[in-house]
């Protein structure tokens, strides 16, 4: 539009003011947009997240029953181990005194599996996104400070990273859970405390490269302060890298939460997919061939984890174009 203006002979100042509105944010948005335009897999991953996000937000509306309350039949007994209605023998439910409307059957204490699955998406996404945000933010800040300032700041932060690398992850979470009340937030805390190490290292190395570039020296010669150089000049260049590690962290967090729940260290009052698997495992669902209890949560975990990695891959391809050939 600006060139049209100058061709029409309008004063340059008026026209040229328009182009720089919010240019930094716009550019970041464009980078993100590019990731999803270029890579169908990343777009697919984003769609998966979107579907789960909608499900999580409207979980109480979608789920037909309370996931924690055992359902009872007309006689007040728990509807234990009901088959999904599409598998059950016709007429069995009426004989037992209830109407079988359960898409995925019930658990051994009469909880609705489908409702559990719906509500499970809430804890998965909650843990996934908050842990990812924590990992990305801590890792980015640590990487920026260590890379930019170097010297003792770098030494202290990177030795701390070494320590974090030395702590085994799952046992650490179990210990954390033992000290704190059982809660899905334990996973988030443990990830925030440990997993910033990878992000921090990678971002530090990138900062080391960028800060040696002449445009950073130019900013310093122009009198820019350290904070301005870090956040205006260096940070925008490494932000896609933070997103990359963030999207991987989502997958890791969901996987970790499932593992921890499966091992029995989760809050029994919060339904998560890992908790469902543990519940199924403990009540010998496998031996009863209750695949409708085991497969759906497993599939959901797999889908969300895959979505995280698909998006990560998309960022990787934009960041490291050479990968595209492989």
């Amino acid at each position: 539009m600006q060139q049209e203006a100058s061709a029409r002979g309008e004063p340059a100042g008026v026209a040229t003011m328009q182009f720089r509105q919010g240019s930094a944010i716009r550019q970041l948005w464009e980078t993100n947009l590019e990731v999803f335009q270029r890579d169908r897999m990343a777009l697919f991953g984003l769609c998966i997240f979107a579907v789960f996000a909608i499900v999580a937000i409207f979980a109480p509306q979608i789920a037909p029953n309370n996931p924690l309350t055992p359902l009872k039949n007309n006689e007040g007994d728990w509807i234990k181990d009901a088959m999904p209605y599409w598998l059950a023998e016709p007429g069995e439910d009426e004989a037992e005194g209830y109407t079988n409307t359960f898409l995925l059957g019930t658990t051994n204490i009469g909880r609705d599996i489908y409702s559990q699955l719906i509500h499970g998406s809430r804890s998965a996404l909650l843990v996934g996104f908050s842990a990812a945000a924590a990992v990305a933010v801590i890792g980015t800040v640590v990487g920026l400070l260590a890379g930019y300032y170097g010297g003792w700041v770098d030494a202290i932060l990177m030795r701390a990273a070494d320590v974090a690398f030395g702590i085994p992850f799952i046992p650490f979470i179990i210990v954390v859970s033992a000290f704190l009340d059982p809660s899905i937030w334990n996973v988030v805390v443990a990830m925030a405390v440990l997993l910033w190490r990878d992000t921090g290292r990678v971002i530090r190395s990138q900062v080391l490269v960028i800060k040696e570039q002449a445009f950073v020296s130019a900013a310093r010669v122009s009198g820019a302060s350290n904070l301005r150089i870090i956040f205006v000049y260096i940070a925008p260049s490494i932000l896609p890298l933070s997103f990359l590690y963030g999207s991987f962290a989502i997958a890791w967090a969901i996987l970790t939460e499932a593992s921890v729940s499966f091992l029995g260290f989760s809050d029994p009052e919060t339904i998560s997919w890992g908790f469902m698997l543990q519940d199924a495992f403990n009540s010998l669902a496998l031996s009863r061939e209750a695949f409708y209890w085991i497969v759906p949560p497993g599939l959901c975990i797999m889908l969300t984890v895959m979505a995280g990695f698909f998006i990560g891959r998309g960022y990787e391809e934009v960041l490291f174009p050479r990968l595209r050939r492989m």
Binding site: T16, F19, R20, S23, A24, Q27, Q213, A214, F215, A218, A219, S222, G223, A224, Y233, P236, S237
Partner: peptide
């Protein structure tokens, strides 16, 4: 290398 690849030229020149 001397100009920030993420800045428009106006932005680079107006920074100082």
């Amino acid at each position: 290398e001397a100009l920030n690849p993420r800045f428009t030229l106006y932005r680079s020149l107006t920074e100082p």
